[in-house]
Amino acid sequence: MGSADGIDQWIRPGPNGLEVNAGARFHIDALRASECVVVTHGHADHARPGHGRVIATPETLAIMAARYGENFTAEATPLPYHQDMVLGDTTIRLVPAGHVLGSAQVVIDHNGQRVVVSGDYKRKADPTCTAFEPVECDVFITEATFALPVFSHPDPETEIAKLLSSLRLFPERCHVIGAYSLGKAQRLIALIRQAGYDQPIYLHGAQQKLCQLYQDLGIDLGELKPATAGEKGKPREDLAGQIVIAPPSALADKWSRRLPDPLVVMASGWMQIRQRAKQSGVELPLILSDHADWADLIRTIDDVAPAEVWVTHGREEALIRALALKGVKARALSLIGYEDDAE
């Protein structure tokens, strides 16, 4: 194990998020428009438009272009996984994070010391993105979205089996699934396909663009159709017994009234808490998360064996407490501005 001494001299949290200052100045997932930014993945709270220069994987750049238009930054620098790039006195490298398509950890080497910024990540299998790779380091800067011992995400296959068994039990009801538009929706579709379901899957308008992009980038999602095409306001009786995927916010919106006898499904890591799921009006909760659960957060820290752990956002107190019990030095960076409810 190396040492974390002096690392906070060249990488530290600033007003715009995590900031590196070593011969060159750049941010990671800057919260406001900044000069030079390394973006870990395409979720809106991490990838914002209007930066001078964005360095990210080609997939992340494609996602940003699809969401914000081609001019989302003055200069887009693609950096494929595992290639070194010199920035001032540092060398940076992007390594798969397993969170969504194109998601990356940022490995930063400077003066013989190494920092890894995890970005958002997970360790469970995901057919729509490259699997997480642990990289040993001196300081590991980790997320903590699901950092409580209550979070233990089940195998995705068992959750998809619940959905398909509900479709068999209630063949007359339209199964409308709330799923975040980037990553969750596509992973869900791919998992449903893996389970052998080959009917068309119907999409809310907000899901179509990114699903198309995933398919253009070579991820097979099968046959996808718009959920509410046709005359405006006219009920879609033909969707009885079909799967519809929509952003969570659309489930209780006027949009959902066109669906026949909808059975509300929600795919999210938060569904683990029954009372929460119940209160949000969900009839079938699917525990499907794109973040690491408690055991995987701890396992990952064991794998990368850092001298120190810095925690960016989520439930940092619990993770820091658990690491203290293991004798691992850890502190909270208290970065504000990254959401965890969108999961």
Partner: peptide, 20 residues
């Protein structure tokens, strides 16, 4: 302490204990 934080988040003793 980890249990207290978990219970605080979940809000139900039976469910918290079942999950941890």
């Amino acid at each position: 302490e980890l249990f207290a934080q978990s219970y605080d988040f979940v809000g139900d003793l039976a469910e918290t204990t079942a999950l941890i």
